Amino acid sequence: MHSGKPREPTTQICVAKADSIEVRGRDLCHDLMGRLSFTEYFYLLLTGREPTESQRYFLDLLLIAIAEHGMVPTVQAARMTLSADPDSLQGALAAGLLGCGPVLLGTSELCGKLLTEAQARVAAGEDADAVAFGLVQDIRNSGRKVPGFGHPIHRPTDPRAERILTLADVRKVSGSNVAMARRIGAAVSMVWGKPLVMNVSMPIAAVLLDLEFPAAMIKAIPLLARTGGILAHLFEELQNPVGFAMTAHAEAAVTYRRGDQSGD
């Protein structure tokens, strides 16, 4: 049973033949292998186009920026899963990636949506500074947090965010989205009455949008990056297991309290 209007099922990504593999209209073995880096190949797979030098440079930069951040919950979940089943590398990797949501790692996606909304309003004729302030004020009034601002460790600045923005300026790729990110940062300081750290998620989204990266796939960058980081932790876990130690510390850190048994 079809849902929606029936249409011919097609793909433009890849076809495998007896003697060749074609990817996005290019011969995998004789054109792509040995010529493209993995970052360039990923961009081609995703968009159907080979990246410009600036797109490749910043995609590499952003993947490196977000790949590793220590014993974060996604890494803990992966390492503890591997401790339970040392033969399930793919299961442990999946366990870590399943924890990559909007609270941890996935905030760049929300930043992208905020920037896209802001740009749509500016394109409709609204003042850019007023748009930034209005969006931030609405978020504060609703009791929410502005995506891309605040960090439990990095204060007063997130060094990754500072480096991304600096290089975007130096290499002249900063456009309307980087400018809007900075306007939103200024608005956050006014609305909250104090400066909040712009964390790495906002520059990731802003630079990707200014480089014409698909907005719907912004979250793919932290996911792809963190896959590399998690795999490094899993290799270390095989050599130097800490999963059960983390379990023991969790048990020690959480106090059991008997709930009310009265039924009231």
Rank of each mutant, 00 (worst) to 15 (best):
E109W: 01
Q76Y: 04
K194Y: 06
A232V: 09
S83E: 08
P203N: 05
A161W: 10
E109T: 00
V75H: 04
T107E: 15
P156A: 11
G48C: 02
V173S: 04
T47I: 06
Q137I: 02
G185V: 09
T11Y: 05
D158P: 14
S3L: 15
E126I: 05
A123P: 01
I230N: 10
I164K: 02
P73V: 13
T157N: 12
R121S: 03
R7G: 13
K145R: 15
V254M: 14
A232W: 04
L105P: 00
R182I: 09
P147A: 00
L114R: 00
L196Y: 05
G193C: 05
E22C: 05
S54P: 03
I230W: 10
A124V: 01
P195R: 10
A77W: 00
G263Y: 08
S108R: 01
L209T: 08
T10A: 15
G175A: 10
S262C: 09
L98H: 12
L63C: 13
S88D: 15
G70V: 11
N141K: 13
Y41M: 14
T116L: 14
R171H: 12
V191R: 06
R26S: 07
S262A: 13
E162T: 15
E53V: 06
I13N: 12
M217I: 00
V72H: 08
T247C: 07
V23Q: 08
L36P: 10
T107P: 03
L211E: 12
A95G: 07
S201H: 07
Q239T: 12
D19L: 11
K194G: 01
P203E: 03
G193S: 05
L238R: 14
Y41C: 06
V173Y: 03
C100A: 15
A205L: 04
F244N: 06
A205W: 03
A123C: 01
C29P: 04
A120W: 08
S3H: 15
N141S: 08
E22Y: 02
Q90L: 11
R182Y: 10
R257F: 15
T166W: 13
G99S: 05
A250N: 13
P152Y: 04
A179S: 11
P159L: 10
F133C: 03
K113P: 00
R155H: 08
T39N: 13
G34T: 04
E126K: 09
A161N: 08
R183H: 06
A179W: 01
H2C: 04
V122H: 07
R26M: 05
R140Q: 13
G243C: 02
S83F: 03
L114D: 00
R49E: 12
A220N: 06
A118C: 13
R26C: 04
L196H: 12
A94C: 06
G263C: 11
L110W: 13
G70Y: 08
A118T: 04
K219Q: 14
L28D: 11
G125A: 04
I218S: 06
G4L: 12
D129E: 15
Y41R: 07
C29W: 13
V197A: 01
L231T: 08
Y43I: 04
